[in-house]
Design a protein around this nucleic acid. Structure first.
Length: 973
RNA sequence: GCGGGGGUGCCCGAGCUGGACAAAGGGGGCGGACUUAAGAUCCGCUGGCGUAGGCCUGCGUGGGUUCAAAUCCCACCCCCCGCACCA
């Protein structure tokens, strides 16, 4: 084989040149533009559009490589394909970066410099649109360089006026359908900025987490509320007293018309959660000690006691004391010498027996106080243990209701949770307390303190009048479940996750007070949030280029316009008149939508299943009729780099631009596809790209050398070459069939292995046996092979295609059909038979690694037992019958032989089974014809003998073994 | 905690509708051929045993179902991801 000179790196740069060359050629000929063609079935594919706050990275490369393979494949299969790409500007991160630039934040500037943004451009980023546009342009370049076949005429951004009109229509539709609701909603909030904060607004990028406490209202004789904040409302039945911090300052406030006592800190926090918190007076904690309050669930009268462990900045600063189940409480009782006065009350059973875990652990550890440093540390841990044990394996006491004074109206509540698991009791009680107005909810920042970038401590604010998309609407959910059944999910393993997501999905706040995006049409003070404005935008791709082409003013894109274009609602003549748009144009746009929609494939990363992808289904269901619902969702995994999660902080973050400086787009694409089957995480490694480059180099050299080899016709071929060509052709038929099936099932990794390795190996083996030459078959194989490579490594394939003398574009060729290679059932059968011989020799050669010659003595005159075995195939139990029959015929080790034959027959197609007699009849001849193949494959010298040959008789006698049909004797010499 | 996914040979990774699985494919390692040499390329080996196509061990751990389990069931351990107003 000749002789492409150059090292792998040289070939690597040659590949880069090839990519550039064909990108230009294709764009010149507009191969990536998609227009209506009624003569072809259409195939419409989209992938999640990128958020342009930075350069595209390998994750994008992966997510877009897969649909690109799909459309290139589908295109060759005769589909009219569309793969468009837009850009997501909606949201706050872009604005946050702009604000950082405005205040000259060094970290942000450094990051942008690292991303290759020139300093003067960075300065322009104080305007967020400049930033978004800059990265959009870079993204387009990256995507072009990846050779993605994107129809750029249909590109848009989510702040384009036309798109905003479309989103307005969508939201009006949702509102009309009753899916938009308003309500209150807790958010992390900066009191200084007077605005919600999320991760990118906080110091150190901490996401403020919100924790829900249950408030329980204890009352004194003046009806003043002492609210305790707890995560364990069920323990209210075991309360012996309340705790306050004697050193802390408490305030008496008026809330919702009631008087309430709580720590100063709590009162501040509460003021963000209630309409009004009116302070009346301050009181030192110590002066609360000794007051008597009533437990609202048991009507028991208890006392307020002092405890230093009470943190006035957690909850309300008032704590209910449950010594039986809370180590802190028991320790605090001990500290003030009350452990015998106030007897711990067990209200939780563990393993069906009343427990006093709180008391036990404190006594076991010899803890005497709740205030000493070392005790507190221990207590914190013990609290966690007790909490978990009681939560996971505790159940409410069976005598719980005896804690409630007899005729009390809430006796029923206690009764209904008696004996129930703590988990369930807690949920039940929480709801009951709030419903009965015996308490309330109180929100805390769970991971506090969290600070806004301005340094202000973040609190929880209840936002009034927040707009939600009501994804918890049961009827809506039902329709989504139905829709999901009709959607093909690739890989199907993710279906369950979709179904579950629909199950737990709640109301989704769909608007924010700041950020880029579309104002809510009926309340322009709100901006539609980014996960809500991007649920049906795929439909927009179908028409945007036409809207622009006809110069339609965005103001004309009214709800009536969209009703007609997307839903076919309304009278086109009247619409034309009222909008002043040509009727023909309206119809043309409508037709464009109707031709391309529904979406055939939606591609995205698996992280978007619980939000975007599911929202997409919800919104399609809400707005479009069933025939326009998406047909397939393809989910890809994450990208890893050298075995580690790719991230900026790990320093292994690779942008597409950077990757393409090291490897060509063909290599990158194929590496990502070969990295993992769809749905799994792809591990991108230097090693992998090197291997892929070398593989492509090998293929290149092979094609080049075949191309320059001599052409021979069948008349000039040796008999054995004719035979082996038939075998090769049969193999190719099989391979193409397998590849087709894999492609149809989105098993691109496996398909690529067959294309780039297995065909490769078959050809190399064939040439090794026969020498390098061209023939009609070989030419056909090479042509088909190049076509098969085209979806994965398009520029590389294009190069080979032209190298082998073609003038057309391979991207425009048809996908090879297996039928172009004649499958001979006989040869397929022979091949499978030869495989068993190869296996056997392989098994034995370990024992005879020093021997280089193999003699195969084949049966030539015995009855064709395999044919007889055919009738025993159906039923495994008849193996015994077959064994008996063989034994009667005097076959040695009949059971082994029977097993072997049956295993072989099971692997055959019906057609092959019908040829089995031929195998018996010509076994010696087949082996002879295939001996050069065996020699090539095994690197051994092979000699075939018929059992009648005198030489064969010697071996038979010596080995005490006689050949049977399909069971030749193999001798290493 | 809840929900989803996963633990396979030196490594990565397929298989997981139960038999053809000592387990595809790739990589690495070792040995060999070629070469003045290196590289590239090609070939062989890469759980253990065995002078004949076989046996033993084995797919997170422990049980179970079955004539037969990497594949099915149960329990446990460990890892990853998501839990919302955030793209």
């Amino acid at each position: 084989m000749s002789s492409f000179t150059g090292s792998a790196t040289n070939f690597g740069s040659q590949l880069m040149e090839i990519s550039k060359k064909w990108l230009i050629e294709w764009e010149k000929h507009g191969v990536n533009e998609a227009n209506i063609d009624e003569s072809k079935p259409k195939f419409f594919v989209t992938a999640a559009f990128p958020y342009t706050n930075g350069p595209l990275h390998l994750g994008h490369a992966l997510t877009y490589s897969i649909p690109d393979v799909v459309i290139r494949y589908k295109r060759m299969k005769g589909y009219n394909v569309l793969f468009p790409m837009g850009f997501h500007f909606t949201g706050t991160p872009i604005i946050s970066i702009s604000e950082s630039i405005a205040r000259r934040d060094e970290k942000t500037i450094k990051r942008l410099l690292d991303d290759g943004v020139p300093i003067e451009v960075i300065e322009s980023f104080v305007n967020p649109i400049n930033l978004a546009l800059y990265f959009k342009d870079r993204a387009i370049n990256s995507l072009r360089n990846m050779l993605f076949m994107i129809d750029w005429r249909r590109s848009f951004t989510s702040v384009d006026k036309e798109f905003q009109k479309f989103v307005e229509w969508q939201f009006l539709k949702l509102r009309d359908a009753g899916y938009i609701v308003q309500g209150t909603h807790p958010v992390g909030w900066c009191p200084f900025h007077q605005s919600p904060v999320s991760m990118h607004d906080t110091l150190n990028d901490v996401e403020p987490e919100i924790q829900v406490f249950t408030l329980i209202f204890f009352r004194d004789e003046e009806n003043i509320i002492y609210p305790v904040a707890t995560l364990r409302p069920e323990t209210v039945y075991g309360v012996t007293n309340l705790w306050v911090n004697p050193e802390a300052t408490y305030v008496l406030v008026e809330v919702d018309g009631q008087r309430m006592l709580l720590s100063q800190e709590a009162s501040y926090k509460l003021s963000f959660q209630k309409k009004e918190v009116k302070p009346l007076m301050s009181i030192k904690g110590s002066s609360l000690v000794g007051r008597k309050v009533v437990n609202p669930l048991t009507m028991e009268k208890i006392e307020v006691l002092p405890a230093g462990f009470v943190d006035p900045d957690t909850g309300t600063g008032i704590v209910m004391s449950v010594p039986a189940h809370a180590p802190f409480d028991y320790a605090a009782l001990k500290e003030i010498g009350y452990e015998n006065t106030l007897k711990p009350i067990s209200i939780i059973d563990i393993d069906g027996k009343p427990s006093l875990l709180g008391v036990e652990v404190v006594n076991n550890q010899g803890i005497k106080t709740a205030s000493k440093e070392e005790d507190r540390k221990k207590l914190e841990e013990l609290t966690k243990d007790v909490y978990l044990r009681e939560f996971n394996s505790g159940s409410m006491s069976r005598e719980l209701s005896s804690r409630v004074s007899g005729e009390h109206i809430y006796l029923g509540i206690a009764k209904s949770i008696e004996g129930k698991p703590v988990k369930d009791a807690r949920e039940y009680l929480k709801e009951a307390i709030i419903k009965m107005k015996l308490g309330d909810v109180f929100y805390e920042i769970a991971n506090k303190p969290v600070y806004c970038r301005c340094g202000t401590k973040v609190v929880v604010k209840i936002v009034e009048n927040q707009w939600f998309i009501n994804y918890e609407d049961e009827n809506w959910k039902k329709k989504v479940y139905d829709a999901l059944r009709g959607i093909d999910i690739v890989p199907n393993d993710y279906r369950e996750q979709f179904v579950n997501t629909v199950g737990w999905l709640k109301k989704k706040a769909c608007a924010r007070s700041r950020g880029l995006g579309t104002p809510l049409p009926w309340d322009k003070s709100w901006i539609i949030e980014s996960l809500s404005d991007s649920t049906i935008y795929m439909a927009f791709y179908t028409v945007i280029h036409k809207i622009r082409m006809h110069g339609i003013n965005p103001e004309k894109l009214t709800p009536e316009f969209w009703d007609y274009v997307m839903l076919g609602i309304g009278d086109v003549n009247r619409l034309s008149a009222s909008l002043g748009i040509d009727k023909g144009i309206l119809e043309e746009i409508r037709k464009e939508f109707d031709y391309w929609y529904p979406l055939d494939n939606r591609h995205s990363g698996k992280d978007l299943i619980p939000n975007h992808l599911t929202f997409m289904v919800f919104n399609h269901v809400a707005i479009f009729p069933p025939e326009k619902w998406p047909k397939r969702i393809v989910v890809n995994g994450h990208i890893m780099v050298e075995g580690m999660k790719m991230s900026k902080s790990l320093g292994n973050f690779i942008t597409i631009d950077k990757a393409l400086k090291e490897v060509s787009s063909d290599v990158l694409r194929l590496s990502l596809i070969l990295g993992a089957e769809i749905g799994n995480d792809v591990n991108y490694t230097k090693q992998l790209t090197t291997t892929v480059t070398e593989t492509l180099e090998g293929i290149y050299e092979l094609v080049v050398s075949v191309n320059s080899s001599r052409h021979i016709t069948e008349e000039n071929m040796s008999e054995s070459t004719v035979f082996l060509e038939k075998t090769l052709e049969t193999k190719l038929h099989r391979l193409l069939q397998e590849i087709n099936e894999l492609m149809e099932n989105y098993k691109f990794r496996s398909a690529a292995i067959k294309i780039y390795h297995e065909i490769n190996n078959e050809l190399k083996l064939h040439f090794k046996i026969n020498g390098l030459y061209r023939s009609d078959l070989i030419n056909r194989i090479i042509d088909s092979w190049i076509k098969l490579m085209s979806p994965f490594t398009p520029a590389f394939a294009e190069e080979l295609w032209h190298l082998t003398g073609h003038k057309s574009f391979v991207v425009n060729e048809s996908w090879p059909d297996p039928s172009m290679f004649v499958k001979s059932d006989e040869h397929a059968l022979f091949l499978k038979y030869i495989d068993t011989i190869v296996d056997d020799i392989g098994n034995l050669r370990n024992l005879f690694s020093d021997k280089k010659e193999v003699i195969i003595v084949a049966s030539s005159s015995k009855p064709c037992y395999p044919a007889k075995a055919r009738s025993y195939l159906a039923d495994n139990n008849q193996l015994r019958e077959l064994t008996r029959l063989l034994a009667r015929e005097g076959v040695p080790s009949p059971h082994d032989y029977a097993r072997r034959i049956v295993a072989f027959l099971k692997n055959l197609t019906m057609d092959e089974l019908n040829k089995i007699e031929k195998l018996c009849e010509y076994e010696v001849e087949i082996l002879r014809k295939m001996s050069s193949y065996l020699e090539g494959l095994l690197n051994l010298k092979i000699k075939i003998l018929s059992e009648e040959a005198p030489e064969a008789q010697e071996y038979i006698v010596k080995k005490k073994q006689s050949p049977l049909p399909m069971r030749p004797v193999i001798i290493f010499k």
